[in-house]
Design a protein around this nucleic acid. Sequence first.
DNA 1: CTCTGAATTTCGTGC
DNA 2: GCACGAAGTTCAGAG
Lengths: 263, 263
Amino acid sequence: MPGEQQEGGRFGVASSPTVEEAADLLKRLIDGSSMVVAAGFCSSQYEGRGASVSTEGDKLLIVKPGGAVILHGPRGFRPLNWQPNTSHTEVSVEKGTLTMKFYRRTPREVLTITCSRVWYIAWVRFPEEGAFWMYMTEDDLRRAVASNPRELLGEDIRFFAEEKRTPTGKADLYGVDGEGNIVIVEIKRVKADESAVRQLEGYVRDYPTQARVRGILVAPDISDTARSLLESLGLEFRRVDLKKAYSLMKSGRGSRRSVLDFL
Amino acid sequence: MPGEQQEGGRFGVASSPTVEEAADLLKRLIDGSSMVVAAGFCSSQYEGRGASVSTEGDKLLIVKPGGAVILHGPRGFRPLNWQPNTSHTEVSVEKGTLTMKFYRRTPREVLTITCSRVWYIAWVRFPEEGAFWMYMTEDDLRRAVASNPRELLGEDIRFFAEEKRTPTGKADLYGVDGEGNIVIVEIKRVKADESAVRQLEGYVRDYPTQARVRGILVAPDISDTARSLLESLGLEFRRVDLKKAYSLMKSGRGSRRSVLDFL
DNA sequence: CTCTGAATTTCGTGC
DNA sequence: GCACGAAGTTCAGAG
C-alpha cells in the first residue's frame, strides 16, 4: 500500500507506489502547479544538442512548476540530465516500466526517463516563491570603479560610457585619463585569466581611433600566464580589493539601496 | 503524527515532521550515505565568493552522499543556492526554527538555510550509481576533424598536435597544409561567436614563427559579428556538419567504441 | 595546488 | 528571435 496521499492538501507524499500508481500521480501532478520529486531506480536517455545515456541506478527527478526538469544521480553537484523547460510531457507504463518523456521545442531535444521501481513521489502544490537578492556581482564592482577611479585605480579617469556597445566592442567602462587618452576598462570579480586579457585586447583593438588607447584590466588577482600575455600586448593591470570596493559603493551617494543593508 | 519512517529500509519518507523531528532525522541522514530531500517553508543566506539572501518561501533541499547541497526555489532551472561539496554541516533547532549550516573549506563559504515549517523529508540510503556516457562533445568533433580533414575541411592537412599546450596557446589542432603552412584549428560544437574568434586569433598570434600561420575556425555555424571580426583578422571559417562528422568518426577505424553503438 | 577551456552550460539584457 | 558576456558558474585535465 502506498503511503498517505493528501492530494487535497498543500503537499503530499506517496511511498512505494507501484509504477502504475506512480504514473497516475505524475500525470496529475505535472501540470505546472506543483514542485514534484520522484525517486526510483531509473535509466535515462537524452538527445538534442548533445546526447547521453545512463544505465539503471538510483535517480532523483525534480519537476518544477515552470516546466524545468532535473534528473540527479547520487553523486556530484550537477544533474545527470535536465531540461530547462519543457513544451510537452508524456507519462506511460508498459510491461511494468514507467516511462517519462520530456520534450523541448527550441532547441529541439528530448529527455527520456525509464524507471523499473519508484521509491517515493513527493510534491508541494502552488509553491510560494520568496524574494531573492544577490550582491557582490561584477555589476556592483563596475559601479564602484566608475564612481571611485582615484581610490580604486589610483588615478583620475572620467568615464563616459558603461557597458555601452561601441562599434565592435562592449567593454565594461570607457573613459578619458588625465592626459586625454581613451581608457578602456575590463572588470572581473574573480582572478583574471587569459580569456579576460583577450577580451580586453579585442575592445582596445576595435576602438575606432588612430590615437593610443589604454586598456586596463581590473580584478582582485591575475594568473601568471594572463599577466605575461597582458604585458606583451601593452595592456595594464590594476589589482582591486573587493571589500574596499563594496564599502566605497555602499558609502557612496547615488548608490541604490543594497541588500547589504540587511546583514 | 509524522508519516512512516522506514529508517531501516533502503529508503523512507517522513511527512509533516515537526522541526525537532526534522532536525533529528537530518542529523542522522546527512552522513554521506544517503540522498536526502527536504521540502519546507524556508529562507536562505549565502556568503563566500559572492553573497545572497532569499526570503521565506517553499524550498526544496537536496543533500547528496558526496556532500553536494542544492537548494531549489519553485521556479527556474538553476538552484537558488548550493554548495558543490561541504566540509562540515550543522543542524539545530531554536525557537521553533530549523537551521542548517553548510560549510565549505576552499573556497571558504557558508550556506545557511532556515525553515519555519518542514513539509516532508525523504531519503534513499546507499543509492546505487548507474553508468553515464555523453557523446557529441567537442572532443568527439575534434577527433573526427583530425582524422578526416579532406572530408570535413575540404583540404588535406597533416595534423601533428591535438590539444597540445604550445608556448602561449592551447589550440585544438596544429597541422601543416599542402603548401607547408602552419595551420591552427579551433573547433566549436555550437555556433561560433566573437570569443571563439578571439581565442583562435590569440593562438595564431602566439605561434612562435615568422612564417605565415593560417587560423581556421571550424563550427556548425558562425554569428554575423564573429564572421566580420574573423575576416578582418585574416582568419578562415569552415562550416562542419555535425551528423557527417559523427558518422565519419563512427565508421573510421581507430575510433574507440562509442556509446552511439547502443542506440 | 594553479591554470585552461568545455558545457545539452543557463541566464539576463539589449537589439 | 540573435548576440554577447556574467556566473557564487562547475568540471575535468594537465602541469
